[in-house]
Amino acid sequence: MPPAIETAGLTKSYGSVRVLDSLDLRVDTGTVFALLGPNGAGKTTTVRILTTLTAPDGGHARVAGHDVVAERRAVRRAISLTGQYAAVDETLTGAENLRLAARLSGLPRRAAARRADELLERFGLTGARDRRTAAYSGGMRRRLDLAAGLVRDPGTTRVVFLDEPTTGLDPRSRQELWDVVRELSGHGTTVFLTTQYLEEADRLAHRIAVLGGGRTLAEGTAEELKNRYAGHRLDLVARDRDAYLRLTPHATAHTPATLTLGVPTDGSAAHVRTLLDALDPHRTDIERFTLHSATLDDVFLALTGPDGTEKEPSHV
């Protein structure tokens, strides 16, 4: 089966800021793919290019088998986008918002009303159908927004884009949205989501790409990434502040308050021994150590470093 999303050498600059620098991605049909990265890594720009809202400066991208520039309309018919900014009208009810979206996607009035009710049911919003969305919780609004992107015949929307779908949601709403994503994926829809939450990518995505400085820093399953980039983490407790400062350049995680530093390792006795000898040849700087299985946070920090936080140009 052809991939749902495929990009090659995608570049985009805003003024002198290079937001995407030769981005290559491949997302298999029917999978959940997470694009993970700090603010300013180029996540939103990637989504905007893949959803035909912004044209790339260079490179190619195909979504659902169509080129995002040359076959924009075909791409639009196959995708749904739920962006960071709400696209529902707060003074309209849930049902009114969905009926409008269905009408805009080309359904006649009656069919649009039917479709709206189906979607309300599917996203657990039937009870709030006639309430204005201003009175919805953050999670309900996000679900409605997602539903509004899916007004077309369920068979035709093949790739769903979610740009930071759970930013600003409470844990319970986040959980509900994750369920929705799993349900979509269970029906064979490809889901492409961006997030800055490692846990979200870990729990939800089949594959993860870590984005930094406009390119893919790493790509794989959560397990692969953990093994490849930070199989284990050795936490070292320095004897004093001077020792801490001497060790700092070698570490990927820093906790000055407890004089603790994290260093990636594969976890083998041989490697741990070599590492300790290399870091502390005189055997005076390190007081204690503990060994941890790495989390996605370790991968993320190892890959993006402490200062991957330039600002991405905002989209209006």
Binding site: T51, T52, L53, S80, L81, G83, Q84, L104, G149
Partner: peptide, 10 residues
């Protein structure tokens, strides 16, 4: 807001 983006993807 996101309205125009949504409209354009439609």
């Amino acid at each position: 807001r996101g309205t125009v983006d949504r409209l354009r993807t439609l």
